Amino acid sequence: MSLLRFVTVEGNKRRKTSSTNEDDVNNEDSPLEASAKAGIIEKKGDLFSCPENESLAHCISEDCAMGKGIAVIFKKKFGGIQELKSQGVKTGGVAVLKRKDRFIYYLITKVRYFNKPTYDSLTKSLHAMKTHCQQNNVKHISMPRIGCGLDGLSWDKVSKILTDLFSGSGITITVYTL
């Protein structure tokens, strides 16, 4: 069984912030070993500085308004609004754009831009993304603290959802905060 723990990255230093196994906390892994085992990594920095072969993910509404927050940057960098709308994805699903060597995941967590997501809609969207990743051999996803900015969800709860859902999947998620 794979263990999943959060690793906080600051510059080149990594610090374990939680673990599913007490013995793990006391083991000193090299930074590469720690991040390889972690599955989910928290990193301070600009999300768009991640390697260009890593897929990206963020939350939007069914109406694909993307008028505030990090969604505005996704819209400017990757376009494809009509392509996203034509997919007709409903709340709890994931719309996907393919850009060069990576996928851009749009987690549909609410009906309209002014609505708020629920933990259930976020979980369903993440599950849909995980399924797409497994079908397309995606191993690395970078994302912001999804649902926790303008959408107002709790990072403690969202990080637990990510941990529970992606544990043992072989998919590494890097979560960026400024």
Rank of each mutant, 00 (worst) to 15 (best):
L3R: 08
L3N: 05
V7H: 02
V9Q: 07
E10H: 04
K13R: 14
T17G: 11
N21E: 07
D23E: 12
N27M: 12
E28S: 09
D29V: 03
S30W: 02
S30V: 09
L32A: 13
E33I: 03
A34R: 15
S35Q: 14
A36W: 12
A36T: 06
G39A: 10
G39L: 01
I40D: 03
E42G: 11
E42W: 00
D46K: 12
D46F: 07
L47P: 13
L47N: 15
F48E: 07
F48P: 11
S49Q: 08
S49D: 10
C50A: 15
P51C: 05
E52N: 12
N53Q: 05
E54T: 12
L56N: 04
L56C: 05
A57G: 13
A57C: 08
H58R: 14
H58E: 11
I60M: 03
E62V: 08
E62Q: 08
D63Q: 02
A65Y: 15
K68N: 14
K68Y: 06
G69S: 09
G69A: 05
I70H: 00
I70W: 06
V72G: 07
F74Y: 07
K75V: 12
K77L: 11
E83A: 15
E83S: 08
L84W: 02
L84F: 10
L84T: 04
K85Y: 10
S86G: 07
G88D: 13
K90Q: 13
G92D: 02
G93T: 03
V94P: 03
V94Q: 05
A95Y: 02
L97G: 09
L97T: 07
R99G: 02
D101V: 13
D101E: 14
R102K: 11
I108C: 12
V111K: 00
K116Y: 09
K116F: 10
A128H: 10
A128I: 05
A128M: 08
A128N: 10
K130P: 00
C133S: 01
C133H: 01
N136R: 10
H140V: 05
I141R: 00
I141D: 01
M143I: 11
P144S: 10
C148M: 02
C148I: 11
G149W: 12
S154L: 06
K160N: 04
I161F: 05
L162F: 03
L162G: 00
D164R: 14
L165K: 12
F166G: 00
S167R: 14
G168P: 07
G168D: 15
S169I: 09
I171K: 03
I171E: 04
T172R: 08
T174C: 00
V175C: 05
Y176D: 01
L178R: 14
